[in-house]
Design a protein around this nucleic acid. Sequence first.
DNA 1: AAGTGTTCCAACCGCATATGT
DNA 2: TACATATGCGGTTGGAACACT
Length: 216
Amino acid sequence: MGRSPCCEKAHTNKGAWTKEEDERLIAYIQAYGEGCWRSLPKAAGLLRCGKSCRLRWINYLRPDLKRGNFTSEEDDLIITLHSRLGNKWSRIAGKLPGRTDNEIKNHWNTHIRRKLLSQGIDPSTHRPINGSLAEKMPKSPILISRDATSGDQQEEKKLKHFGSFEGNNRKNIFPFEEIGCNPKLNLELQLSPPNIQNPHDQSLAVSDVDFLDLKI
DNA sequence: AAGTGTTCCAACCGCATATGT
DNA sequence: TACATATGCGGTTGGAACACT
């Protein structure tokens, strides 16, 4: 016997949420709390499945969401956490107040990944890519070079000049061997083992990133 | 101005895990 | 213990917006 669907697929809306649906969801959660997602749509008068409601609330309607552009500090923290946790977006999001796993995942795939690639760093391993300039840099367990002087627009132009990359659309291979690291400024982040104060607590604490030794 | 290509992100899907009976 | 159900998570997709020719 196969697994039953998470919700009744018939008679449910899909696609973008309307303003009215948002208002209904917000009003219901403000009145009754999050509770049971499966029964929420019916109770709130929404033709959506519980999963969809949960996603909408967590990613876009929650009042404590920060929204807006990621700061360079947030970028650095994401890179650091990703180097340790991999694609555990929900755990990474847990360390960035006001940010959601989906938002961080998108930001990683659209901005950070390409930034690392343009700097000759493999975003999966956080190590220099073979043949790149970055490989010639001093080796460290995890090495992150950051061009602090170039903005996103500049980065965007450079990337466009060299073509697309194997990113969200997975269509093109990025010719990163043609792109050198910007020599203007490198911020090298070195990671060392965390100082675990409570061995029973396996979860990362915010202080876990304090071991970062930032050299400019 | 129009056609085509690319980027971005909201939302979906399926699997894993947690919880209840 | 086994099974059913609910929730959470991460990968993937669709399409609007934007850039380029």
